[in-house]
């Protein structure tokens, strides 16, 4: 039985202003991502991967086309409705980790889940344990290595059991061994939570670990 799409992107176009006129970054991109599915989005630098990820995460709006998350079209939503959609259903793992520097590991992991009203201390503790962070719960991001910080970011992304997890080069800043370890645990937890995962990556090896792979070139999927 085909599962319902968590993320639907239909004929999306996106341009940014440039010195000599608008620069078309995405040109008619369409894709579906059902729950439990994992999709790798690859492409050269400047091919529009991150832009597509931001549109999927309701962080930005397309110039044309439609992005829907759990059936909610993001275009036409106000700032606060879009924020609520992000808070309740979407999590993003960034390459730069982007943790909250003033909060310790425990609070960073549980932050978005608590924001969405789904703070579950036991689940957060389980996540911390599975991510190998149990001994670092009272530490602050600056006191952690890059790999540890990325594991905190993954924990934060999954603590609220979101329907859609977006990951932008989550292992791009890590060495191969650390990157593999982080990826293992991430895929395991995504399976556990039955989330849909869209991952942007340069790495064919990392992309190979996903169920599906799509390549962006010149703003179009090939």
């Amino acid at each position: 039985m085909t599962r319902a799409a968590v993320l639907t992107i239909s004929d999306v176009w996106k341009s940014f202003p440039g010195d000599t006129g608008p620069i078309e970054v995405l040109r008619g991109v369409s894709l579906d991502l059902p729950g439990g599915d994992t999709l790798a989005l690859t492409g050269e630098s400047g091919s529009g991967k991150s832009t597509l990820l931001h549109l999927a995460g309701a962080l930005d709006a397309p110039n044309k086309g439609q992005v829907s998350v759990l059936g909610h079209a993001t275009h036409g939503l106000g700032d606060s409705q879009r924020a609520a959609l992000r808070r309740d259903h979407i999590s993003v793992v960034f390459q730069q980790f982007n943790l909250i520097p003033s909060l310790n590991v425990r609070d960073n992991i549980s932050f978005q889940a608590r924001l969405a009203g789904r703070g579950a201390p036991e689940w957060c503790a389980t996540l911390a344990d599975k991510l190998g962070l149990a001994d670092h719960l009272t530490k602050f991001p600056e006191q952690l290595s890059g790999g540890q910080q990325q594991r905190v970011a993954i924990g934060r992304a999954l603590a609220g059991r979101p329907a859609l997890v977006l990951a932008d080069e989550p292992t791009g800043n890590l060495d191969e061994a650390t990157g593999d370890a982080v990826l293992d645990v991430m895929l395991y937890l995504v399976r556990e939570t039955d989330a849909a995962l869209l991952m942007v990556t340069h790495s064919k090896r990392v992309a190979g670990r996903m169920a599906r792979r799509l390549h962006l070139r010149g703003g179009q999927l090939v």
Binding site: G57, L59, D79, S80, A83, A84, L85, R86, R87, D88, S91, V92, F94, N98, L99, I100, P101, F111, Q112, L115, A116
Partner: peptide, 16 residues
């Protein structure tokens, strides 16, 4: 911006 952007990404509005 670097400090508040993650919060915005997690669902806090710019106004808030």
């Amino acid at each position: 911006a670097a400090q508040v952007a993650p919060l915005w990404a997690m669902g806090l509005t710019r106004r808030r």
